[in-house]
């Protein structure tokens, strides 16, 4: 129980730190570009909207930073992240609320598939080290060094342009109406296949290599030898003793590297014009839409924190040592 409380406290603290960082970054950097953009929309913005943008970017010289900080939190708790310039005058929160499910579905699904497949492959390679299977390692190594977005480009050019198997962009069939209809969902799956494949292929090698090395290390632990001495079936030793322990650091590694992976997948969304947070971020960069960028950062960070927390709890479930003692 103590472990859970500690972890929850850590994630709350990190969330606070990220939100506060988000508050301070615009204040530490020159505010002119934002100012000029707000002026551009001056006549069309309500006073409330202007006020929240001023708080967000610290442009009002009459208020103290502390007052700003309080108002920033108040706005945040009311879901007010400012107004988007790109999709003027839609509030940022609305845009992100629409984009988030796409990102969660794509990134969540493909990251977990990548992790599971990579871990399984790593178990096999680590257990059978010194056989032909070792020849796969350099290939995995090469793939782990490829940036997601470039693999995405190659995938599009090969499977969407040259051989037209998959659509090159978008998240669903534009002829369907978003909803829980079979047409829409199957279209979404069809559109999501290529981005998902890209993410799986580029993330899988990291898990393979990491898990393989953990298997090699854990295999020389005494309890694995004991399991062999007991004459247990091979599968039991491999999965119940070696892999069961080797996967633990892999899961905590998963929790910690989620932020990095999600960063990469956001870029993959940009390549595929996939209607998730990453693509919104891309749009925001193009039109210097600062409120949308800030909002995207917050939403991505909070999602990553929640996902890491879940991974941490899975870890605690798998490792009795964390459950009993803090």
């Amino acid at each position: 129980m103590k472990y859970f409380l500690r972890r929850v406290a850590f994630y709350l603290f990190t969330a606070w730190a990220a939100i506060t960082l988000n508050f301070f970054i615009p204040r530490m950097l020159p505010g002119d570009p934002v100012h000029s953009l707000i002026n551009k929309f001056q006549g069309r913005l309500s006073t409330d909207a202007i006020k929240s943008l001023y708080v967000l970017f610290g442009l009002d010289k009459h208020t103290t930073i502390w007052q700003d900080y309080i108002t920033y939190w108040q706005n945040l708790l009311h879901g007010d992240l400012g107004i988007s310039f790109t999709y003027f005058p839609t509030p940022v929160s609305e845009i992100l609320a629409q984009a988030l499910p796409w990102t969660l579905a794509l990134v969540g699904f493909s990251t977990i598939i990548g992790f599971v497949l990579g871990t399984l492959a790593g178990i096999g390679l680590g257990w059978r080290r010194g056989t032909w299977a070792d020849n796969l390692l350099p290939i995995a190594n090469f793939f782990s060094a490829i940036p997601y977005f470039w693999l995405g480009l190659i995938a599009i050019s090969a499977l969407a342009v040259t051989v037209q198997v998959f659509p090159a962009s978008g998240g669903y069939d534009p002829a369907t109406v978003p909803g829980w209809s079979w047409e829409f969902i199957s279209g979404a799956i069809y559109h999501g296949t290529l981005p998902a494949l890209t993410i799986i292929i580029s993330s899988i090698s990291g898990w393979i290599l990491g898990m393989r090395n953990m298997m090699v290390t854990v295999s020389s632990e005494d309890y694995v030898t004991v399991a062999q001495a007991k004459g247990l079936p091979e599968r039991k030793v491999m999965f119940g003793y070696a892999a069961r322990n080797a996967v633990l650091p892999s899961i905590s590694g998963f929790a910690l590297s989620l932020g990095f992976i999600v960063g990469g997948t956001l870029v993959a969304e940009m390549v595929f014009s996939y209607p998730g947070i990453g693509y919104m971020l891309f749009q925001a960069i193009g039109s210097k839409d600062y409120p949308l960028m800030q909002g995207a950062f917050l939403v991505v960070t909070i999602s990553v924190l929640v996902a890491s927390m879940i991974a941490d709890f899975v870890y605690a479930f798998l490792d009795p040592r964390t459950r009993v003692e803090g």
Binding site: D222, Y223, V226, A229, G240, Y241, R244, N245, D319, P320
Partner: peptide
């Protein structure tokens, strides 16, 4: 059967 040296690591910590 064998009784291993170092009982610390001889038992699977997760079972």
């Amino acid at each position: 059967a064998i009784v291993f040296q170092g009982s610390m690591n001889s038992l699977n910590p997760v079972y």
